[in-house]
C-alpha cells in the first residue's frame, strides 16, 4: 500500500502537490513506524515478562538445580525450597476442574446448539457469556463463605463414608471434614471455566455447515449420532483447543484458589486435604519473602507457571488454528 502511494507521488509533477505528497509520505512512514513499534511492544512485553522472571529466579535455579522441581521442601527457616508441592497442587486442581468442566461444557454447548428450542438458545448463551466475566475473587469469596461449609458439612463426610472405603481409590477421599482442600478448589475452578469452555465449544459447533448436518438428519440419524459422527469430528481440533484454553486459565487462576485451597505445603494423596498451588503460593508469600533466596524461589515458581501456561496456550492456539485452516480449505 505504501508502495502504491509513493508511485502516485512520482507520477505527479505539480510542485505544491508534490510537496504535500512528500509530506504525506513522511507522515505515512512515521505512522507506520509508530504502529509497528506498538506491535513490537506486545512481543517485548511477553519476552520481558519471561526474561525478568528467569532472571529473578536464577538464584533459586542455580542453588537448587533440578532438585527445585522434585523437592517437597518449603522451609523459609533453613532456606530450602522446592516446587513439587505447589506444582502438584496446581496440576491436581486443574485436572479436577477439567474432569468436571469438560463434559458439562460439552453438554451445555450441545444443548445450546442442537437441543434447546430456538427462543431459549440466545438468552441462555448470552447469560453464560456474561457470567464468564465475573471476577475470580467473587468465585473465591463465594467458595469460602458458601461452598466450603457445604463441603465440610455434607460432601466430605459422605465421600469419607462411601468412596473412602474403596481400596486404592479410597485414599483420595479420606480426610477430616475441613471443607477446604484440593477437591473444593478443583470444583470452584470448574465452575469458573465452564462458561469459558462452553462458549468456545458452542461457537465452533455453530461453524459446522448446515448441509452436513442436514444430510445426516435426512438419512435418519438421531441428534446424538449427528453430534457424535458429524459435529465432533468436524470440530475436534477446535474443541480440544477450547479445552486447552480452559486448562490454561485454570492453571494460572489465583484468587478463586487462594481462598479455598488451604495454603499448606504438604504433599498428600487425599483430595480432601489442603494443598497449595503455584499462583496461591506467590499471592500469599511474595510480599513477605524476607530473604533473597525465598523471593527468588517464588519468582522461579512464577517462571514455571509462565512456561507451563505458555505451552498449554500455544497448544490451544495451534489446535484452534488447525480447525480454522481446515475450514478455510473447504
Amino acid at each position: 500500500m505504501a508502495a502504491s502511494s509513493s508511485a502516485l507521488s512520482n507520477a505527479t509533477i505539480d510542485s505544491p502537490a508534490q510537496r504535500r505528497n512528500t509530506r504525506d509520505a513522511r507522515a505515512d512512514g512515521l505512522f507506520r513506524w509508530i504502529v509497528a513499534s506498538a506491535g513490537l511492544f506486545v512481543l517485548l512485553a511477553l519476552l520481558g515478562a519471561a526474561l525478568s522472571m528467569l532472571w529473578g529466579g536464577r538464584e533459586a535455579f542455580s542453588t537448587f538445580g533440578f532438585g527445585f522441581l522434585t523437592s517437597t521442601d518449603w522451609d523459609a527457616v533453613n532456606h530450602k525450597f522446592g516446587a513439587l508441592v505447589p506444582i502438584y497442587g496446581t496440576l491436581v486442581t486443574a485436572l479436577i476442574a477439567m474432569l468436571i468442566a469438560v463434559p458439562v461444557s460439552f453438554g451445555i454447548a450441545l444443548f445450546l446448539t442442537e437441543v434447546a428450542p430456538n427462543w431459549l438458545r440466545g438468552p441462555v448463551a448470552a447469560a453464560i457469556e456474561l457470567l464468564a466475566g465475573i471476577p475470580s475473587i467473587i468465585y473465591g469469596m463465594w467458595g469460602l463463605f458458601v461452598f466450603v461449609p457445604v463441603m465440610g458439612e455434607y460432601v466430605t463426610p459422605w465421600l469419607n463414608d462411601h468412596l473412602g472405603k474403596i481400596p486404592g481409590l479410597g485414599a483420595l477421599f479420606t480426610g477430616p471434614p475441613l471443607g477446604i482442600g484440593m477437591l473444593t478448589a478443583g470444583i470452584v475452578l470448574a465452575i469458573m471455566v465452564i462458561p469459558f469452555i462452553s462458549s468456545v465449544m458452542r461457537e465452533v459447533f455453530l461453524t459446522v455447515p448446515m448441509r452436513l448436518k442436514e444430510s445426516a438428519y435426512a438419512l435418519g440419524s438421531t441428534t446424538t449420532e449427528v453430534v457424535w459422527d458429524i459435529v465432533l469430528p468436524y470440530t475436534r481440533s477446535a474443541v480440544i483447543g477450547g479445552v486447552f484454553l480452559g486448562l490454561g486459565s485454570a492453571l494460572g487462576e489465583t484468587m478463586a484458589v487462594t481462598f479455598v485451597l488451604g495454603n499448606a505445603h504438604q504433599l498428600t494423596a487425599s483430595l480432601l486435604m489442603p494443598g497449595n498451588s503455584i499462583a496461591a503460593t506467590i499471592a500469599n508469600e511474595f510480599t513477605e519473602a524476607d530473604s533473597d533466596i525465598y523471593r527468588s524461589s517464588l519468582i522461579a515458581l512464577g517462571f514455571l507457571l509462565f512456561v507451563v501456561t505458555f505451552f498449554v496456550l500455544a497448544g490451544a492456539k495451534w489446535m484452534l488454528r488447525r480447525m480454522a485452516r481446515a475450514e478455510g480449505e473447504k
Partner: peptide, 25 residues
C-alpha cells in the same frame, strides 16, 4: 503472525505473573 500468537498468549497469561513482572520492573 508472531505478534498475534504472542498477543493471544498474553491474553490468557496468569495475571499474577504480570504482577510479579511489574514488581520487579
Amino acid at each position: 503472525e508472531a505478534i498475534r500468537f504472542v498477543n493471544d498468549i498474553l491474553l490468557s497469561a496468569p495475571s499474577i505473573v504480570l504482577g510479579l513482572f511489574v514488581y520487579t520492573l
